[in-house]
């Protein structure tokens, strides 16, 4: 990113980030199929996963059109390796216990919610319309995940402990989500992407509010943050996620149809 980035390049990169984050979190939720802590939660988790993979598909389709090198939405999802993936580190973290699952969901939902709220107003009509549909879905995701964070935080002693641990462990992946790099700065200046400072402030405000209400202790302001996903440096988890998710496309490279 040393050379000045064109708006087009930034947009392609940004669309892949949105798509990849949706896709990988959807994939993580699929892993929980049949394993949720209550039958009602099976429905809810799969609903969220369906929304996310559906959103990923919309973003991939638009990205494929802009990239225009013959690759389809499916190629982008199933034929790129980890170093080309641009999802947030947060979403590739393992499901852990349900406090981790919901903590991860909440941190991401809060970012997702404010991001989409801004993209809805993008002058690019395609972005605005994809975001408008997604925003409604994510509003619901956020409501659910913040309720669960509160339930755990202010539930039993055990759930409080588990939730606090989840928050502390996941915290190091939050910094990257709300720190803008060249791509996000470029898109903000072009009037397409969210205002990075505003996004960070909104995210912090909401997270603090929910954690406080949940009687949880927010980690210190100067906590160390893990970075790298925006340039393709992921945690070790992503390779395994892709190995599973892309298995058929990789094992049968000659297949033209599924």
């Amino acid at each position: 990113m040393s050379k000045a980035m064109t708006q087009q390049e930034a947009l392609q990169e940004y669309l892949l980030r949105l798509a990849d984050s949706d896709m990988i979190l959807g994939q993580r939720l699929c892993e929980l199929c049949g394993k949720a802590p209550a039958l009602e939660e099976e429905m809810a988790l799969m609903n969220v996963a369906l929304d996310l993979v559906g959103q990923a598909r919309n973003w991939y389709e638009y990205a494929a059109e802009l990239i225009d090198d013959g690759r389809s939405a499916d190629d982008l999802a199933f034929r790129r390796d980890a170093h080309d993936y641009r999802n947030a580190l947060m979403v590739e973290q393992p499901n852990g216990d349900y406090a981790v699952t919901m903590g991860r969901q909440f941190f991401f939902d809060a970012w997702h919610y404010f991001t989409l709220a801004s993209l809805v107003k993008a002058p690019d009509e395609r972005i605005a319309s994809i975001a408008a549909k997604a925003a409604k879905e994510v509003q619901y995701h956020l409501r659910r995940s913040s309720e669960w964070v509160k339930r755990f935080g202010d539930g039993t002693e055990e759930s409080h402990q588990r939730m606090q641990t989840a928050v502390d462990d996941l915290w190091r992946f939050t910094g990257e989500m709300i720190e803008a790099d060249d791509v996000e700065q470029t898109l903000f200046k072009a009037g397409i992407g969210p205002n990075p400072e505003q996004l960070a402030a909104d995210w912090k405000g909401l997270v603090n509010e929910v954690l406080t209400e949940a009687t949880l202790t927010p980690p210190p302001e100067d906590a160390w943050m893990y970075r790298g996903a925006k340039v393709g440096h992921h945690t070790e988890h992503l390779g395994y996620i892709l190995a599973e998710m892309q298995f058929l496309q990789r094992a049968y490279p000659d297949a033209k149809t599924w």
Partner: peptide, 20 residues
């Protein structure tokens, strides 16, 4: 019917189950 810990959750569970 649905099972839920409270009315709010019942509402969400009902939405997820009966209005897919």
């Amino acid at each position: 019917s649905v099972h839920a810990a409270d009315a709010e959750m019942a509402m969400e569970n009902a939405r997820d189950l009966y209005t897919r």
